[in-house]
Design a protein around this nucleic acid. Sequence first.
DNA 1: ATGTCTTTGTGAACGCGTGCACAAAGATGG
DNA 2: CCATCTTTGTGCACGCGTTCACAAAGACAT
Lengths: 236, 236
Amino acid sequence: MATGRSHRPATRSRGIPEATVARLPLYLRALTALSERSVPTVSSEELAAAAGVNSAKLRKDFSYLGSYGTRGVGYDVEYLVYQISRELGLTQDWPVVIVGIGNLGAALANYGGFASRGFRVAALLDADAALAGRLVAGLPVRHIDELEAIVVDNQVSIGVIATPAGAAQEVTDRLVNAGVTSILNFAPTVLSVPDGVDVRKVDLSIELQILAFHEQRKAGEGRQEPDGDVPAVMPA
Amino acid sequence: MATGRSHRPATRSRGIPEATVARLPLYLRALTALSERSVPTVSSEELAAAAGVNSAKLRKDFSYLGSYGTRGVGYDVEYLVYQISRELGLTQDWPVVIVGIGNLGAALANYGGFASRGFRVAALLDADAALAGRLVAGLPVRHIDELEAIVVDNQVSIGVIATPAGAAQEVTDRLVNAGVTSILNFAPTVLSVPDGVDVRKVDLSIELQILAFHEQRKAGEGRQEPDGDVPAVMPA
DNA sequence: ATGTCTTTGTGAACGCGTGCACAAAGATGG
DNA sequence: CCATCTTTGTGCACGCGTTCACAAAGACAT
Ligand SMILES: NC(=O)c1ccc[n+]([C@@H]2O[C@H](COP(=O)([O-])OP(=O)(O)OC[C@H]3O[C@@H](n4cnc5c(N)ncnc54)[C@H](O)[C@@H]3O)[C@@H](O)[C@H]2O)c1
Ligand SMILES: NC(=O)c1ccc[n+]([C@@H]2O[C@H](COP(=O)([O-])OP(=O)(O)OC[C@H]3O[C@@H](n4cnc5c(N)ncnc54)[C@H](O)[C@@H]3O)[C@@H](O)[C@H]2O)c1
């Protein structure tokens, strides 16, 4: 079992900073909207506003991809859509398995934005035998025993985990063993994976707690915390 | 309408760095698990491993909260649970409304991890009149018209948006107008909010695209991109 | 061709976050 | 009371990310 180092030091793959990679999908979404309205070109200022970022940041981000703009005019929308799609690897198909078809897993399976960008749900997996065969979003739920075969046969490299926290590590191990190298984890656990496997997590509970922190600050504005006001428990 | 600057420059509220705030829930989760196993104390090394972070980082994070450790021993688990909870504002109740009770909204409503940490679902709201009154996770779905009254009456300060993208900005405006100052957005749109309102977004599609980017890199290992291989479309 | 005007692409400065490495603090045992 | 051993708390250096500000590039009109 690997130590789950999962924190590569901001890998900067071929010179594209991680922070930039995380924003490319945002730009792509804004550009796609422009494209649908048949807007031919867009300035960094306009596009930045649409994506909710600073325009200098956007220009610098694009500069990592190459010089795709025209001074005095802006960026060609279609061309940029293509370049970003290619950079993100969206010009190819990515088979995905979803494991754990409960409330969340079923919602994910039904999510339209999945297929829209080259992500194809190859299979839905669950340990509950009672679920097996049932159709969710038009796909039959398969039993978890079939995991390895499905991953290998469909060359699945991306797995989505929506099982309870207790099962997440075991599912991860099986996915990784079968050949999956990218995992999107919705279960509230820290996953251990070998080097070379990417894990991203989505954690509702953490997001809410961060909001609560700032909310508390807003409420306590001006009022000074006594700070010595610590009841009861103290360490030996 | 405000410009939706939502990016405060790493606010550093009362000296606690934003990056630290984002990790506190992680520590809290690990500590809670220890607490349930009645472990009295824990070293920074052990806790860091459980939370999947560097131990020096963890110690520095805790140092922002105060000197709660004992050299040669470690940290008192219960005490730390209390301190972090207090810092995050989890010692009080946070009423939350969920807007858009479709696939995702219903899954969120059913999510147990919600109530477990002081977040109480005050109401479920949807525009679909056919849904009104139906029970989801034991709560009746209320019509969106009741939004303002519910927010005011329950002093709701946190809103969760799970509507289609097209409705998200309008829902946001209404929430903010009614007094909500923190928003967790699941719809794939950039939201504009006035200063003082926090927005956090959860975007499945973006996460997948980031994974795809790295996946593509792994696949293309060694093989050099010709880079001049750009078909068809070129800007004038 | 030349000048003007717009917008890109980037050099440079700065601030935040991370991790090493170690001194100081305290526990523990004799 | 002293020595030893463990573990914290932090000074420091470094690298990444952000933003400003501006020179250069190109479009467009005359
Ligand atoms: N529902 C939410 O909104 C939400 C939000 C945030 C996080 N989460 C997390 O997502 C996960 C799923 O949440 P949910 O509400 O859908 O739970 P759920 O109980 O409705 O669904 C879990 C599913 O996983 C299946 N499962 C259990 N063990 C399995 C295994 N070893 N292999 C394959 N499948 C297995 C179960 O049969 C079940 O169908 C949980 O970890 C939860 O904490 C959920
Ligand atoms: N399902 C997922 O896994 C998933 C994942 C990522 C993002 N999202 C996003 O979350 C949102 C919801 O997804 P979903 O799959 O639950 O969609 P859904 O269509 O199942 O549910 C949307 C719900 O919002 C309600 N609604 C529409 N307009 C409204 C309004 N103005 N006010 C209040 N309610 C309104 C609809 O009646 C419906 O019940 C979408 O924006 C989607 O892109 C969903």
